[in-house]
Amino acid sequence: MIGKSIKSLALTQQVLLFASTYLMIYLNPVNDFMRSIGKIWVVVASLLIIFFGIVVFLYFIERRISKLEKEFDNEQQEH
């Protein structure tokens, strides 16, 4: 008898656990912008990150080139 009630208690727990996870995920879905249209905006964000990473890199390179140009000009003036 006790064994059976423990078993059914464990069962209830199992059901409750599953139900609560289910409720969390399915019944209160997080419907924000990033998750809309099958989370496609996450991919868009990734592509934008890569694009802006390349832009920042270009900026960095350009600054190094300006520095070299300045050094070059200073040398020309000295001669």
Partner: peptide, 15 residues
């Protein structure tokens, strides 16, 4: 769970 983000295989993984 992946849904459309399976496309990240072509942009995140090659990094």
């Amino acid at each position: 769970i992946l849904e459309e983000t399976i496309r990240n295989t072509y942009y995140h993984v090659p990094m």
